[in-house]
Design a protein around this nucleic acid. Sequence first.
DNA 1: CAATAATCGAGACGGTACGTCACGTCTTCTT
DNA 2: AAGAAGACGTGACGTACCGTCTCGATTATTG
Lengths: 202, 202, 202, 202
Amino acid sequence: MSKSSAAVIERSSARGRGRPRSEQARTAILQSTLDLLKEVGFNELSIESIAARAEVGKATVYRWWPNKAALVIDAFVSVVGEELGFKSKGSVQNALRDQMRRWTVVFRSPLGRIVASVIGAGQSEPEILEAFREHWVEPRRREAREMLKRGIKNGEIKDLDPDTILDILYGPLYFRLLVQNTPLSSDFADVVLSAITPGLFQ
Amino acid sequence: MSKSSAAVIERSSARGRGRPRSEQARTAILQSTLDLLKEVGFNELSIESIAARAEVGKATVYRWWPNKAALVIDAFVSVVGEELGFKSKGSVQNALRDQMRRWTVVFRSPLGRIVASVIGAGQSEPEILEAFREHWVEPRRREAREMLKRGIKNGEIKDLDPDTILDILYGPLYFRLLVQNTPLSSDFADVVLSAITPGLFQ
Amino acid sequence: MSKSSAAVIERSSARGRGRPRSEQARTAILQSTLDLLKEVGFNELSIESIAARAEVGKATVYRWWPNKAALVIDAFVSVVGEELGFKSKGSVQNALRDQMRRWTVVFRSPLGRIVASVIGAGQSEPEILEAFREHWVEPRRREAREMLKRGIKNGEIKDLDPDTILDILYGPLYFRLLVQNTPLSSDFADVVLSAITPGLFQ
Amino acid sequence: MSKSSAAVIERSSARGRGRPRSEQARTAILQSTLDLLKEVGFNELSIESIAARAEVGKATVYRWWPNKAALVIDAFVSVVGEELGFKSKGSVQNALRDQMRRWTVVFRSPLGRIVASVIGAGQSEPEILEAFREHWVEPRRREAREMLKRGIKNGEIKDLDPDTILDILYGPLYFRLLVQNTPLSSDFADVVLSAITPGLFQ
DNA sequence: CAATAATCGAGACGGTACGTCACGTCTTCTT
DNA sequence: AAGAAGACGTGACGTACCGTCTCGATTATTG
């Protein structure tokens, strides 16, 4: 979390001569963005209101983020913690169940609405989607892929492409997050995993 | 197409005294909306540009649709054909495979981008999501549910909630449509179905 | 005065199809401009404040005037009455004295500060100066030139270029208006005319 | 040039402890100001662009000049040479003709545009006008006044207030400089002087 | 067949937010 | 202490659309 946005905005960077960037302004902007994102959603979110709430000049926002999309991504990334990693030490199956359940919790929280907003905004702005994949999907997939590969190697699960497996497992959760046809309960995670279990585990 | 917008705009059948609504204007507006939706996405879509392209007064748009969302929904609904119904007459499994494959084709077409735009826009505007479910998801689910119930009754598939099954089957397709991490090939439909088969079919 | 600004902004103009221009808005904008011009001067004058005071959208200002300069000129011209024409019916000499005296009065009034502002602004923006000459200098010169030509024809004054004569007569008044080294009294007009009399009248 | 800016900025002769003021920076700033004043005029002149062109920190400009007006005045004063003094040793009339001709040359030069800019800027900012009178008008008037008084005393010219005479003689030149209705030729100086001669010289 | 009435296009209206620019101030390191 | 660099909060710029409104013109039904 600490230097999360460094991935998007190159700070540090040789320490130039002028007045250094205000960390306070940066934090206030990201926080205001998150707050407003939750309150009004991406479409109604205006740079003007972000700057006003952060008590910051509009130009300071534009100095560091080229557009609303980049700012939203950065705010989003800055808040993405480690709470979604795999914690179970047991079988692959247990680890998956445990983590999928935790995702349903996250998806029901305000962070879930932000994730949905970001994917939604990404449908109009490719770079948002790109950043979403890079900063949200990929970091989680990296870990999951390793675990699945281990499972494949030790014969616990069938030899399928790990990314395909993950699309199948998490796709339904995203579907309910985004389409909201049915509430996203923890049970749903269990059902999805159970349904896939015979086809996945040997 | 005929009664498409009737769902949103209740046109009086009483046939008042004045000049009747111009069918040409209505069609041109919906078509311009679809075209621009494909070109620039929902966020960058402006009523101003729609009216200009349709060669129509802005007030004519506002007279018939209360906001951009309603217009997009109506345009979307007007273009949703019947081409996505179940056609196979064989087993449930074959019908599913056949239709899932056809969905990947649709999702790769311009209509796929529109579906994605509508879901995306729906993340900020609940009524768009509501309309998406009502006019897109539900009509297709109705048919699919019947088929699954038949499969359950005749013992071909396990006794699970049909909607849950459909979320599991189609969720991954929507995931790829929306997140675009991997191209949506027809093979993917087969893989999803295969993976779910042992857990679904008895 | 009534349709004075028509010279700058072409109104009337065949009566297009759309909603007609709001005369009320136009008047309020010109009046606000004059008021603010007197209060803060040309440099500190902002379109934003003009629009706010006129209770008008900023875009309405920009729709009709390309920039601050054009607006100031138009406001300026709209207030230029006929009070500066030649009224005396006697000799050319009497007419000149009478009018030069009246100019010193005008130059000491708020209108004088506006004239000075316009000339001042014109030093940075050529089109302001152009408009000043066209809408202020030239209309007055036309009349004066005729009178001088009559005086030359009937032998009252020497045969010099009328514009040169007028530059000599009015230049000193403008000098005091602009440089403000000495207050512009009516007496000064008399002194200038007296000094030039032996060289001008035969 | 040497003590030019002393009039505006009182530089301490006490020679404080720290790094002394950079003469190079001061010169570069004044030169950039003059250059840009010629190029874009007073209104479009920005401290930002002056500092950039002088390759100087913005704060360095603000440290020594309180505002744009003071800087322009200082730059203007720094460039005002002695080349406009009276050189002719003959009659007052010859001296005036000679000098007025030289003024038309100056007014057509870049310095003429600067003089015009300064007077123009002075219409919005009184201190500029004040400085213009003090540093430009008055030094020249001092000399001219003496000469006129001599002429009055020896009977060459009539007993009129010298400043009034000078306003009458130079007003028309300033008028053409500022209003630009007619090019400022040397001939014009002769015409003005000739026209005033019978009323001025005995 | 005229009168009435709702629609149409066009486009101006008061607004809001955009992204940019310069303001004058400040904070850092360098000279 | 002064310099350059450059970030800061502020506020106006000129533009694009918003959703509303007023026009003249058009096209129906109704008396």
